[in-house]
Amino acid sequence: MSSVDFWVGWLIAAGGFAIVLVLTAMPELGMLAAGAVAGALTAGVTDSLVAQVVVFAVVSTALILVVQPLARRARSGSPALSSGVDALIGRSAVVLVRVTGSGGRIRLAGEEWSARSLGEDDIYEPGSHVSVVEIDGATAVVM
């Protein structure tokens, strides 16, 4: 087989990996396809089949070892973004009118909210800083 034939064979292998990647959604196959392209480029430079296979193996393995941990971290690392009232949970607020277990008023995110304390016996005086632990309808539950 001439180097042109090896070059074409590597590209056919890369295409095969890419097709199976699309059908199975296994990212490792994309990395093998990239390794096969590297093998094709090597075949364009040298007739050595050993060098082509070594380049394919090194590039594929390196991509798998580097990309897999990054992809895993990206999938599990970022928390979901909160919006609406869910984004208010954990925020700090200032007490405007004394907050007890039965009611009161706070300034939360630039708006005035009705509020009640988490514990029935907890009392927060005006000017105190509280944290929102829950939104119950239109009432912020604070502590």
Rank of each mutant, 00 (worst) to 15 (best):
T139H: 09
R75H: 14
V95R: 00
L49G: 08
A43M: 08
A80D: 15
S92K: 12
I135P: 07
E28A: 15
R116E: 04
V67L: 10
T100I: 03
V37P: 03
T24R: 07
V99T: 02
A43W: 01
R107L: 15
H129I: 14
L70T: 13
V66G: 12
A62S: 10
P27I: 03
G39S: 02
S92N: 12
V53S: 06
A87P: 03
D122C: 12
P69Q: 09
D86V: 05
M1D: 10
V95N: 01
R75G: 14
E125G: 13
L96W: 06
Y124H: 10
T139C: 10
A93G: 05
G90Q: 05
A38Y: 01
I106N: 02
V37S: 09
V54T: 09
L65T: 10
V66W: 14
L29F: 04
L32D: 01
S3P: 11
A36S: 06
V133Y: 15
G30D: 01
I64Q: 07
A115E: 00
P126N: 08
T42K: 00
E111M: 10
S117H: 08
G16M: 01
V99C: 03
Y124A: 09
L108H: 00
G9F: 05
G39R: 00
S102A: 15
A140T: 03
M1L: 08
A25F: 12
M26W: 15
A87N: 05
G15Q: 02
G16K: 02
A115Q: 02
S2L: 08
G119F: 12
R105K: 11
V22M: 10
W113V: 04
S117I: 05
G30P: 03
D136V: 11
V45S: 12
M1E: 08
A43N: 01
V45C: 10
W113C: 06
G137K: 07
V99K: 02
S102R: 14
L23P: 05
A93F: 00
H129C: 14
A43D: 07
T42F: 03
G119I: 11
A34Q: 00
S2M: 10
A51E: 06
G84R: 09
T24A: 06
G30S: 05
G119L: 13
R72Y: 13
V4L: 14
G127E: 02
V142R: 04
A138H: 14
L108C: 06
L88R: 05
A71M: 15
R116G: 02
A38C: 08
H129G: 10
A40C: 04
V97N: 11
A109D: 15
A62E: 04
V130T: 03
L32W: 04
L11P: 01
F17Y: 00
W10G: 00
I89R: 02
D136P: 07
H129A: 14
A57V: 05
R98K: 12
S48F: 01
F6C: 08
G77R: 08
A109P: 08
V59K: 00
V8G: 06
L49M: 10
G110F: 04
